[in-house]
Design a binder for these strands. Structure first.
Lengths: 348, 348
DNA sequence: CTCTAAGATGAAATCGGTTTCACAAATCAA
DNA sequence: TTGATTTGTGAAACCGATTTCATCTTAGAG
């Protein structure tokens, strides 16, 4: 119903006065790290309960030097992959008594830098960078420089890799994932394999391309530049990328999408060209988000243990914040999940 | 790279000392709400820049009484609808100089109550409740009671409706949305219309059911309880709900899904039964998330102006926090978007 | 050339906790 | 019974900003 006059906030001083003890004693009851005579302790606890008192986290954070808060910067939570990772991360942090602030950078460097500052101001105990231009190789010098500055005051965890920057990395083994997909396709007789979506200046994407390329070479398959269409990471990118492939004289028998999101666009493009998956073209992708379950046909994709992924991110961040020394680099394993979108290469 | 020894944080006292002025003067330069002799001001600014100094937000929040922070509790950001709303809300808040903390309650009341406490402790200027069991009619007494308590100290904005609770409401006009879908279906000759997904104890869902029911009655169509299958709000719920409908002797010619997410499950079920959409069955849903664009066929659904929705939520929360008196209730309009999943009723 | 209002600035109080320090009281060992 | 611990407690300092208050300049009006 709108406005209500707010209650006056009560403090430990109020509690102390009414309980007839000093504020210090109330604080001792609160933190529990000192002895308080039972009788007084119970009196104080009774008052805390009665007045529904909660200690002011700002004051607490100011005197201790921890806020029990993590700052997360994601490119875009609407992307199911980030949503899943964030979710897992947030739940893990919550179990460890930490709250998280979330900011969507939309992949814009200025936004990320500004938010980095803001988290620093807010005394976040650690900052987590999910994707975005974090692992950008080209702008490495620009952005990494900024991150490097932040690292000097606050621990930073990234899901990519920043060279010459003292931050922690928890990342998926993109090469291994690509290897699993390619092996799967080779096994089904595919040789004309396309790769759609992703920017080469993002480390994970770069690693995927590297692996794709070297595996084709290893099998003596001539790599055709025409089969590689880079772009973004969403539906639109997949859709446009696949349309581009259809403009070429010979079409691929299989397409590796940079992620599930792009794969859905690829499926749409193939559908609109009157072809069917996997009979005419196989489509495989990365991430095993809920999209791979709900698209028709269901997608063959690579899965990660999201709970573990999120937990490692949160635990690394928190361990660093608390001065314990977490592993500087953690790799997340990947598993191939075969569904309906991939099958034997058609005989052309 | 891992651990690095952290820089000592510098404060206005450090700046003050080096500039040869008092901390008060540095503060005045920072806030800009008092005159400082140009010469000194520039000296201070120079030092602030040189040391890359940012004022401690905790200290600031403690002395002023605003933290420029909003707390958001969502059921699950992996749900594209919440992701979109959150995103819009966060961007709007950011433009107004506010940061947001996000917590996923997974729809569990205990989680919501606990987080409500935590935001109160952290002195969030306002708390925003996106969905979840917020607008729960049945447990109203339990949960609303808790919200009511929080409202006494912090403004609360909900996207549902809580009776007898002094909080602000910014919500979608669910009845209007349902009306648009039903009119669309009636226009195409549908009469045997099913409704799948959603819990009746959530206000928006309740409103949808009410409207569905009264519109059928108004047209003199006998309402069949068999055509209403409640459940959850995700893919699985839609899938199972639709399977349930298929167990019945006569199948509907059209299905209204409680949201896009559930609609994708419905599409899958229909697909598995060897039928096609919209030739055999029309499927329509709510929310126009990116799912409605990427599913095959694309979904006919109701759209809202997400930016506006998010902006109203953020602005209402902030206005309330700053003591201005925002409208207690804001309704968001809906628009019908006709895509591929709906068509004329088949002649049976 | 006064007189007054505005500008400039530091000292000190405040926000709401935690923690050190000092001292008193209770417990324990010898 | 006495000295050595351990327990219990309040006063006061501290965390890092903002802001009031008082004082001192300086500028502008008449």
């Amino acid at each position: 119903m709108g406005e209500a006059s707010r209650d006056r906030t009560i403090t430990i001083y109020d509690i102390a006065e009414e309980a007839g003890v000093s504020p210090a004693t109330v604080s001792r009851v609160l933190t529990g790290n000192a002895h308080v005579r039972r009788e007084k302790r119970e009196r104080v606890q009774e008052l805390i309960a009665r007045y529904h008192f909660v200690p002011n986290a700002l004051a607490k954070g100011l005197s201790e030097t921890s806020t029990k808060t993590l700052g997360v910067i994601a490119a875009d939570v609407r992307n199911p992959f980030y949503a899943s990772v964030f979710m897992a991360c947030e739940q893990a942090a919550e179990r460890l008594g930490y709250t998280v602030g979330l900011f969507n950078s939309l992949g814009k460097i200025e936004n990320e830098e500004e938010q980095l500052e803001r988290f620093r101001r807010q005394k976040a105990d650690a900052i987590i960078l999910l994707g975005g231009r974090v692992d950008d190789l080209v702008t490495n010098t620009v952005f990494a420089g900024h991150v490097r500055k932040i690292c000097r005051s606050t621990p930073v965890v990234v899901t990519g890799k920043l060279d010459r920057t003292p931050c922690y990395s928890v990342r998926i083994d993109a090469s291994a994932a690509m290897r699993q997909l390619m092996d799967h396709l080779f096994l089904h007789g595919h040789e004309r394999i396309a790769l759609v979506g992703g920017r080469l200046d993002v480390t994970s994407t770069y690693e995927k391309y590297q692996t794709y390329s070297s595996m084709l070479n290893a099998r003596g398959i001539r790599e055709s530049g025409d089969l590689v269409v880079s772009g973004g990471y969403d539906y639109q990118s997949g859709y446009e990328g696949m349309n581009r492939l259809f403009e070429q004289p010979v079409r691929p028998t299989a397409v590796v999408a940079i992620n599930d999101f792009a794969a859905t666009g690829i499926l749409r493009s193939i559908f609109e060209h009157g072809l069917s998956v996997p009979a005419d073209i196989s489509v495989v992708s990365f991430d095993n988000t809920f999209l791979s379950e709900l698209s028709i046909p269901k997608l063959t994709t690579t899965d990660y243990d999201y709970d573990y992924f999120g937990r490692m991110i949160a635990e690394t961040a928190i361990a660093a914040a608390e001065g314990r020394n977490p592993a500087p680099e953690t790799r997340i394993e990947t598993t191939l999940i075969v569904r309906e979108s991939s099958g034997s290469a058609p005989v052309l």
